[in-house]
Design a protein around this nucleic acid. Structure first.
Lengths: 110, 110
DNA sequence: CACATTCATCGTAAAAACACGATAAACAAA
DNA sequence: TTTGTTTATCGTGTTTTTACGATGAATGTG
């Protein structure tokens, strides 16, 4: 890649891409799915469900947290995670504002 | 990575992740945005808009096409692209079915 | 036919993502 | 205090992504 040019795009495009990147791996989808069902969950429980090593799961959790999709709270030796629904709402809104606008007008294609 | 374990997740998780991966780069978001506004567009017009080389844009277009998000039709020496709206609807549906379900119940977090 | 235009593909290089084991840090319990 | 539990981080190796220039293929145009 040499020089990555992500900065040369609009912030809205960058934000949308960053959110999409965060959910662009089945493991992270699975993590979010578990959190959505259980409301909150400690790391260890997720490790038991996923077919991945503890360090790998922890890495995925970190990426989700950095992207703002989940919150983590230290609880003694454990860490409790949950979904940040506001981030999801923002993604949905941005996503629709970019692509849903002209959906009806664009029934026909080239 | 050695062995990638994406196959060990459910097909629904894999499909969602694949769609997200396709839109996980600002350049591809920008391409989709242009296509949404113009309905259809040839490769050369996109190259003029984006701050990327022609070969790079072509590569991004290929990824979007492989993921099923756009259609391409050869028109003489040109290639005309447009958005596959059905794919977007499917993504929206899958996305909501996974994460929107328990949104109300999960107002409080850990 | 010769030449230009348009786009895809190839080869390459640098960067990032992915996955793991090992280790470290923080806390609870004996 | 010593030990065990839980999680994050570090170091490493492999794979994938990103980006470009150069080349090739296909179609027009003079």
């Amino acid at each position: 890649m040499a020089i990555h040019k992500k900065e040369e795009f609009s912030t809205k495009e960058q934000h949308l891409a960053a959110f999409a990147k965060a959910i662009s791996h089945p493991a992270r989808i699975a993590i979010l799915s578990v959190l959505a069902k259980r409301n909150q969950c400690i790391c260890g429980e997720i490790v038991e469900i996923l077919p991945l090593a503890q360090s790998t799961v922890s890495q995925h959790l970190k990426e989700l947290k950095n992207a703002g999709l989940i919150n983590g709270e230290i609880d003694g030796p454990r860490t409790c995670y949950c979904i940040n629904w506001k981030a999801f709402e923002k993604f949905n809104a941005d996503f629709n504002s970019l692509f849903e606008k002209l959906k009806e007008a664009n029934a026909k294609c080239c």
